[in-house]
Design a binder for these strands. Structure first.
Lengths: 144, 144
DNA sequence: ATTTGTGCAAATCGTTTGCATCTGA
DNA sequence: TCAGATGCAAACGATTTGCACAAAT
């Protein structure tokens, strides 16, 4: 990491992209900044696109989709499946689980240390576990 | 339950529908039979539609979708979310988890007794856990 | 007879793709 | 320069909806 990494506005995102082997284009930098500068986030393509447009970055929705998948492919993001019909991307790529607030379709991280899973069954011979997803679905107590 | 419940071809499905408060139409009976007569199943709308057509029941795909959701609403089915972009329905409505074979997009039940989850975190006050989904994603060991 | 469900086709939604243009290395 | 990225619009697949018709009570 170079010395100016800490003080240039886009340098953090820039280094992330360089390290991942992705060419740091204007659009990728803008999206990386929105994604990674504010701590852990859970975004959909649509949300991120709105934010990008609102921030003055002219990125098309198609590019947002492509970029989210590229970031996921290189390990900068993780896709979380909680809803058939809407893909969520999580900037927290460490091992962890999720609360899913069904009423407002919102995700929240649950550190993996907070849940203890024992006796996880082995998959049939010839298979490996690639990931264990735990989603704790939550609704407000007093009716919808 | 009436005496003839056990020996008429559609009586099992018929009672399930009656008990659920759904009018036992020809289409619902045919779908219920396909779903519930063969033990635990994980189906997509498309698969079930193909099966229905193959079995000579002329049910439209739209009706299959509607019916799957009606069955889910009355608790005869459970929706399993493993893939944004494709809804799976599980005839096993008891508490259990899933293996998901990523290569062939196939689901397999994991009895809840086979997994021990401790220290499940409480959701923020005012919220209740409606369900805990555990999906063990599996890939074959020797590369894709 | 009345209510409820069905079929179809068209509408919708999220997502992906093809291709001409643009841009970073 | 030139491989690789973007933008747009059109294609796409899964799902839903509107409405005229049909079937169950």
């Amino acid at each position: 990491m170079t010395e100016e990494a800490q003080d240039r506005p886009y340098s953090k995102a820039l280094n992330q992209l360089r390290d991942a082997g992705l060419r740091p284009t204007r659009q990728r930098l803008a999206l990386a900044k929105l994604l990674f500068d504010r701590g852990d986030r859970h975004v959909t393509a649509e949300i991120l696109h709105e934010e990008a447009v609102a921030s003055g970055a002219y990125v098309s929705l198609a590019t947002v989709y492509n970029t989210l998948h590229q970031f996921t492919d290189v390990g900068l993001l993780r896709e979380v499946v909680v809803d058939s019909g809407c893909a969520y991307f999580d900037t927290n790529i460490t091992d962890h689980y999720h609360f899913f607030y069904e009423e407002d379709s919102r995700l929240e991280d649950v550190p993996s240390e907070m849940v203890t899973i024992h006796n996880l069954p082995q998959p049939p011979a010839g298979n490996d576990i690639s990931r264990v997803d735990v989603v704790i679905r939550v609704r407000s107590s007093n009716g919808a």
